[in-house]
């Protein structure tokens, strides 16, 4: 079950503050990195909702993310709609696709869930890749950013855009935390722990799993719409399954089921990839090795491991005090 502990709040605030400072004090490329981190962190948080709290390991979150980006881009480029409408269309598309996939796959478990989501994601990828109307593999240019000058924000400025992305990341995190702490979230955690038992007590687990997936897709959609605005360009590899795989890596590296861990994982992976690519073009091998080590180390991820050790240390301290008290008496 999800708890918003002071440690998590502290880690979240420190992360956002660190990224904001990095963006405002750094050069142009540091801001780009912060934007990339913020968007990937949103996507990772959205995946953590289903993977970490509902045992739904999705390999189609890249496709959901890409569909939202395409929804936004298509609305603006092909239909000449204003970006605000594009935003709604993009997120709606993500929710619709997420609800559909979530509903169809809700009956499958384990490796079959992974494979089924992979299949649906690849269908979306192939359809967009082969659509000449959407530009095929060349993608679509001319995707504008939203005009927020009414509230005094110049979205074309990279610092402003980076800070907006961080603000949205905070909102996404809060939304996820609120939903997971609600009675719906507790039911979801119950399904995560033992789906058969939840069914036995009369809960419609299929419906809950579908709703959770749709909610997760909405957050992935927000990330996708921001991605389209960031690059001002959309192309099919946003939907390719390896992106879903990378997001899953991020969730695991950061700590599955901790919500803040995936945001930390996104920061780590982007920085790692960036740093390693300075020294060698063979960054795949480094990322692959880090991932393998992370899983072998227990699979709790960086933040998960930290919480685990903290909890163990506290329990031991409490136990020591407990026995000490008994001796006094």
């Amino acid at each position: 079950m999800f708890r918003q502990t002071p440690i998590r709040t502290g880690a979240g605030i420190a992360l956002i503050a660190g990224l904001a400072i990095h963006a405002s004090r750094g050069g142009y490329f540091d801001r780009e990195i912060v934007i990339e981190i913020a968007i990937l962190a949103m996507l990772a948080i959205s995946l953590d909702i289903v993977a970490g709290f509902g045992r739904m390991i999705s390999l189609c979150h890249g496709a959901i993310f890409g569909l939202a980006a395409y929804g936004y881009g298509t609305a603006i480029v092909k239909f000449g709609l204003p970006p605000s409408t594009g935003l709604v269309i993009g997120i709606a598309l993500a929710i619709a696709f997420g609800a559909l996939v979530g509903a169809i796959c809700a009956g499958t478990v384990g490796i079959f869930y992974i494979m089924a989501t992979l299949a649906f994601g690849q269908i979306a990828y192939v359809l967009i890749f082969e659509s000449r109307w959407l530009g095929g593999d060349d993608g679509m240019t001319g995707v504008r950013r939203m005009d927020l000058s009414l509230i005094g924000l110049n979205m074309r400025d990279s610092l402003t855009f980076a800070l907006v992305c961080l603000a949205v990341l905070v909102l996404v995190y809060i939304a996820a935390a609120v939903v997971l702490r609600s009675s719906f979230g507790r039911t979801l955690s119950g399904i995560h722990a033992n789906e058969a038992r939840m069914r036995a007590v009369g809960i419609n687990t299929r419906m809950h799993k579908t709703a959770a997936f749709a909610f997760s897709a909405a957050l992935a959609g927000i990330a996708g719409v921001l991605k389209a605005q960031h690059t001002m360009f959309v192309s099919p590899e946003l939907l390719f399954w390896t992106l879903s795989g990378e997001v899953l890596i991020i969730v695991i590296l950061g700590g599955i089921g901790t919500l803040i861990g995936p945001a930390i994982g996104a920061t780590l992976l982007v920085l790692l990839k960036h740093e390693v690519s300075h020294y060698t073009v063979y960054w795949h091998v480094v990322v692959g090795a880090v991932l393998i080590l992370a899983v072998l180390a227990g699979g709790r991820g960086l933040f998960g491991e930290f919480e685990y050790r903290l909890a163990r240390w506290r329990a031991r301290r409490r136990a020591r005090r407990g026995t000490g008290g008994a001796a006094d008496a």
């Binding site: 780009e32 192309s235 590899e237």
Partner: peptide, 20 residues
């Protein structure tokens, strides 16, 4: 800068080259 074969990556790197 490495574009891989990914247009978004290429665009991000181009922006870095120009702006930074």
């Amino acid at each position: 800068e490495d574009t891989e074969v990914r247009p978004p990556e290429g665009l991000a790197k181009a922006r870095k080259l120009v702006l930074q």
